[in-house]
């Protein structure tokens, strides 16, 4: 089976010069299949947002290459490529223009990428809002008049408006309350299945990853320390760093506690 839609090969990213250099990414390699949710997890500073920016073409890698649909991605991205790889970030308020209504923000994406006939765009906006679970009247509102979860739905609707192949999500639910998070995660799952989109889901929250991802890259200091299916990562991780991360998660029920104890024993047994 080869439905690889994006492949990142030997990516390095170095910031700064001289003695102030930071190697934010070291030899990062992974593939993304069509319809897959690939999680990138790690602690703060491990390089998660840097790989997101490289994939989105916000800045180029220092070395290494990314192929998308078997074509090498160049630092200068065409409009078509920008349309196909969309971005949803942690703080939807900073991603939305505070002076534009929700409808206008989504319409801008449709206009820029020339999606649908001009006369149909109003209808497309309504359909998108319904698809992400917002009332149609919300198109007249400003972002400030929405809750955090509602704003995140707007960001998702705007990404969907571009009919992307991939959405890069950088901590999309980290600022949300747990009930709101549950609803956004379910929405993302539904959209992925219905539309066959692929996600690169970036987060520091391993419990979220367990319930949303097919495969997981564990990042530590810019390197992938473990890359496996979600089942393997949580039931039989090979690396002690992964076990250590999972063992630190505060859990709420007994079966979780048992799993955590098992992993931390395996972790301690290595010393």
């Amino acid at each position: 089976m080869n439905n690889t839609i994006l492949f990142a090969k030997n990516i390095n990213k170095v910031f700064g010069k001289g003695k102030d250099t930071v190697q934010a990414l070291s030899d990062v390699t992974f593939g993304l299949q069509q319809g897959e949710c690939l999680a990138i997890v790690g602690e703060s500073g491990s390089g998660k947002s840097t790989i997101a920016n490289v994939i989105l073409g916000i800045f180029p890698p220092t070395s290494g290459e990314i192929t998308f649909l078997n074509e090498k991605l160049l630092p200068e991205r065409s409009l078509m490529l920008k349309k196909q790889i969309q971005f949803v970030q942690q703080n939807p308020l900073s991603a939305l223009n505070p002076k534009k209504t929700i409808g206008a923000s989504i319409k801008l994406a449709l206009d820029v990428h020339n999606i649908g006939d001009k006369s149909d765009r109003g209808q497309i906006i309504d359909t998108l809002l319904l698809e992400v679970g917002l009332p149609i009247e919300f198109k007249h509102r400003l972002p400030a008049a929405l809750s955090g979860g509602q704003r995140q739905r707007v960001s998702i609707a705007r990404a969907l408006a571009c009919e992307p192949k991939i959405i890069v999500l950088d901590e999309p639910t980290s600022a949300l309350d747990v009930l709101v998070q549950a609803r956004i995660l379910n929405l993302l799952n539904k959209l992925r299945k219905e539309r066959g989109i692929s996600y690169i889901f970036i987060t520091h929250d391993l419990a979220v990853v367990r319930n949303i991802a097919n495969n997981v890259c564990v990042f530590n200091q810019g390197k992938i320390v473990e890359y496996a299916t979600t089942d393997v990562i949580f039931n039989n991780p090979k690396q002690q760093y992964t076990r250590q991360l999972i063992s630190a998660i505060p859990v709420i029920d007994k079966s979780e506690q048992i799993l955590r104890n098992k992993l931390s024993e395996a972790h301690n047994a290595q010393f």
Partner: peptide, 20 residues
């Protein structure tokens, strides 16, 4: 009960539909 159900578990099982 809703809060508890909404917390993602490291043992998996997905995330149920819960009213916010």
């Amino acid at each position: 009960q809703a809060l508890m159900a909404a917390v993602p578990r490291i043992t998996g099982g997905g995330i149920p539909e819960i009213d916010d």
